[in-house]
Nucleic acid binder design. Structure first.
Lengths: 232, 232
DNA sequence: ATGATTGTTTATCGCCTGATCACCAACTAT
DNA sequence: ATAGTTGGTGATCAGGCGATAAACAATCAT
């Protein structure tokens, strides 16, 4: 039983050009890992691709290299340079700009695929998530804070304070987690995304202006405001 | 080399009472799985416990059963019955109640252990997360909405609308994700948790009241408000 | 002391995983 | 047609996994 006679009924080999194959592997692997986690087996992945497992190793030296490729496509794909411009275009009302931005941004990241890969990577402790968070702070949140300060008639210092950034994070996360509940936990949510975003923005913009209207130190402003409310 | 001579230098056996062992296994397993994910090996877990791997199977019929036990302790431990009472105690200002509640709640769930188990379970698609989300809606968010309506002088209908719940989710998630950034992604954050919560609440309470001050349909209220702002 | 009980370990099984290598077959250039 | 190149496969390896069974040793009742 050492050498079996060569089976003639071998599966038909479809020959694809290397580039096409590689691209197909990466995109399908992204879907696969987003469902199974990065512990998903290479055999299962290959079956899903309709090829045999060793073929993967002709295109990627190891499973980890394939995974890194997956990260690249997931994290670099979404960021649209136009968004920064959109956020800072003062010819339009801020509310409108933010609505349009979050509508577009969530159109990109609110997919089961994107969100799951994001958290699988995060739980692994990879730098890529910290990097992404930094990008969000730089390209999105600090812009939003600056526009809010402008809207409230406050002086636009160059860099937002940590407290201001945290407030923008509360908005960002509030919207973000709507997608998490829907696409990761598959929990029932209000299906009208547009309204959820709009409401979140209305609450934020109204609140932000009032809380930060006390000049200078935001902590004191917030404290003062709530003390006043407590006495009323 | 079939039978090795019995090694006399065997590791000392410490005999513990079954209950103590079991409890120790579950708590240490929680820490272990929160770091390694549920794909962490039973051998590594046993090494961390200072015992041999087969001993685990004397206390739990399978790895899955051990994991279920871990879920139970993680998800049932935190919920404090006093919180519902705290949220609805109208002898105190709402702002103050919410600050105290979120301070206490985040003291419990803002640990690397809790948050990681939560997302590992969520990515697995287990019902337990949907169940937890339902509990949060029932015991926390719907209470908050009702108190907000009362504060705003609106009629307190029995059940909050889906849109109102979503707005409470934005608050909840905004605060929650602060912990995620800190303990899962280990990203630098403003260390003053108290201030972050306080600011988030100030923005929310101020905004909520204004946005929902138009009676009845919250969607129309929000729309009207932002149109007004756009025209100004 | 003696035997029964049971907590703990050693050794091992069958299975699955990532990875490798020799071989096969499809396309290309001649 | 023929040889060369290379995409693709079958077989297999070493190692890790969850789980089991038998042997050992610490405690308890007598």
């Amino acid at each position: 039983m050492k050498k079996a006679p060569p089976k003639r009924a071998r599966a038909k080999q479809k020959r694809l050009s290397p580039d096409d194959r590689r691209r197909e592997f990466v995109t399908k692997a992204t879907e696969f890992f987003s469902e199974e986690g990065f512990d998903g087996g290479t055999r299962d992945l290959a079956r899903r691709l309709g090829v045999t497992q060793p073929l993967l190793y002709r295109y990627f030296p190891s499973k980890d290299d394939l995974i890194k490729e997956v990260y690249r496509t997931v994290y670099l794909e979404p960021f649209d340079a136009g968004w920064e411009q959109l956020l800072t275009d003062r010819s339009r009302p801020l509310r409108e700009r933010l609505r349009e931005f979050y509508q577009a941004y969530t159109d990109v990241i609110f997919t089961r695929k994107w969100l799951r890969i994001y958290f699988y990577a995060g739980l692994k402790g990879l730098d890529i998530n910290r990097w992404y968070i930094g990008v969000v702070e730089d390209k999105i949140l600090s812009r939003i804070v600056r526009e809010c300060r402008h809207e409230a008639g406050l002086p636009e210092q160059g860099t937002p304070t940590a407290a201001e950034l945290e407030m923008a994070w509360v908005l960002q996360s509030g919207i973000f987690y709507y997608g998490v509940r829907k696409y990761i936990f598959e929990s029932p949510v209000l299906e009208d995304k547009k309204q959820v975003i709009s409401d979140a923005l209305d609450v934020f913009l109204t609140g932000f202006e009032q809380v930060f209207s006390t000049a200078g130190d935001p902590a004191r402003a917030a404290t003062k405001k709530s003390e006043k409310a407590a006495l009323a």
